[in-house]
């Protein structure tokens, strides 16, 4: 038998259903393509929160600011194509805040490490000690596994299913 695998995209996705005799806010049901569809480029919108940890959805479109975090982060491209550029940070440039990405004012002055171009289904290491910038020629979607930080945008009321449809 031939199978048809369904993945979503910004242009085409189908949301599931949540039918519960419970407060739906406890389940924070959202959809990454819907969130990215409504987001400004490079808003880092939390869709997962496990105490201090988050997963953020990013609509990649044009060039992002430069970011850095005091720990590893990971990006998964869910739609389109995203290029990640990396610059090595000197020890005194590695951010000292508790966690999550911070935005840098400009490209850091350290050596360029290279770049990764990722498409749907690819997972990219955003290593501690490197600053990174995302670029995409057309609207794309990525999920970033990270820590709740200064760039994390919380708009749960806007993105989650609050009532049964």
């Amino acid at each position: 038998m031939a199978y048809k695998t369904r993945t979503g995209s910004l242009a085409s996705y189908e949301k599931g259903v949540i039918e519960l005799d419970d407060d739906l806010r406890k389940y924070a049901f959202s959809n990454v393509f819907e969130v990215a569809g409504k987001s400004a480029p490079y808003e880092r919108v939390a869709v997962v929160q496990n105490l201090e940890y988050v997963a953020e959805v990013v609509r990649a479109e044009g060039d992002s600011p430069w970011y850095a975090a005091p720990h590893d982060e990971f990006a998964i491209v869910m739609d389109g194509e995203v290029t990640f550029r990396f610059v090595q940070l000197q020890d005194d440039q590695v951010p000292g805040h508790e966690g999550g990405a911070i935005r840098l004012g400009a490209e850091p002055n350290g050596p360029r490490m290279g770049r990764v171009t990722a498409r749907k289904g690819h997972q990219v290491l955003l290593p501690k000690g490197a600053a990174y910038q995302l670029s995409s020629a057309r609207p794309s979607v990525a999920i970033i596994q990270t820590v709740d930080g200064p760039e994390t945008v919380k708009k749960w009321n806007d993105i989650c299913v609050l009532k049964e449809a």
Binding site: R6, T7, G8, Y13, E14, K15, G16, V17, I18, E19, L20, D21, D22, K26, Y27, A28, F29, S30, N31, V32, F33, E34, V47, V48, A55, M78
Partner: peptide, 14 residues
């Protein structure tokens, strides 16, 4: 309590 159907791109807490 009910049911949840998750499709590609859906995110849900348990």
């Amino acid at each position: 309590r009910g049911r949840i159907v998750m499709k590609a791109g859906d995110v849900c807490a348990m």
